[in-house]
């Protein structure tokens, strides 16, 4: 007889702990137990991060083994990961080498990706008018241009009216009100998803 006990046990744990933590926000009973459960969850998340690193390594080792066309990049990733891991274990996270690697490799690479993103977005905004020409796309591009023009001086010249009147009106009133409406919708969706999990209707833990 093959009994799969994993699903019911994980569901009972998830619902029980979830209901206890949620009710603690409204009825402050057993705060120590609540803190202890949350601390345990944080520890498990820390371990999951380590598992994520192992998964990342396995995927790239598999690519190297298969000799895929990006195997060289995978090899570089594994070597870099190994060097960073060893230096951090030997010197600690505040050591000279880990800090040097972070400041001179990690930050410049991520900054360059940010720069690529900026160019990509400018290009995508222009393409939007050819890809999907409708009233909302025109409003989107026009608003983005007004915000950019009002954000700072151009060759030392601040465009009057746009910088001090139109930009604050667009970003703080129109965009601010729209964003609050969207956030309310996101809040409702978050509560609904959380409740579905507490009811056992959604089981993101496999099951």
């Amino acid at each position: 007889m093959n009994l799969n006990l994993k699903a019911p046990i994980s569901t009972i744990i998830a619902i029980g702990v979830g209901v206890f933590i949620l009710s603690g926000y409204f009825i402050p009973l057993f705060p120590e137990l609540r803190t202890s459960l949350l601390t345990t969850a944080m520890l498990l998340v820390g371990f999951a991060l380590f598992m994520g690193v192992i998964n990342l390594s396995l995927v790239h080792l598999d690519k190297i083994r298969q000799g895929s066309k990006t195997a060289l990049y995978s090899f570089l990733l594994i070597i870099s990961m190994f060097i960073t891991f060893v230096t951090t274990i030997l010197q600690g996270p505040d050591g000279f080498l880990p800090n040097w690697l972070f400041s001179n490799i990690q930050i410049p690479v991520e900054t360059s990706l940010m720069a690529v993103l900026t160019v990509s977005l400018a290009f995508a905004t222009v393409r939007l008018l050819t890809r999907r020409l409708n009233l909302f796309s025109i409003i989107f591009v026009f608003s983005a241009m007004l915000i950019l023009l009002g954000s700072g001086p151009i060759f030392g010249f601040q465009i009057p009216f746009i910088g001090d009147t139109i930009r604050p009106y667009l970003s703080q009133i129109l965009a601010g009100a729209g964003a609050r409406g969207i956030l309310l919708g996101i809040g409702l969706g978050t509560v609904a998803t959380g409740l579905r999990i507490l009811m056992g209707a959604d089981r993101p833990f496999g099951g």
């Binding site: 995508a124 969207i182 919708g185 996101i186 409740l195």
Partner: peptide
């Protein structure tokens, strides 16, 4: 809005389960 072919704005994101047929509870919660 500028880069994706189709975008889910605000709470449309949380309606995903109901629209792909993930279960009656997804429709009820919607």
């Amino acid at each position: 809005y500028a880069t994706a072919d189709e975008q889910l704005i605000g709470e449309e994101l949380y309606a995903g389960g109901a629209y792909v047929g993930a279960g009656p509870m997804h429709i009820a919660s919607l």
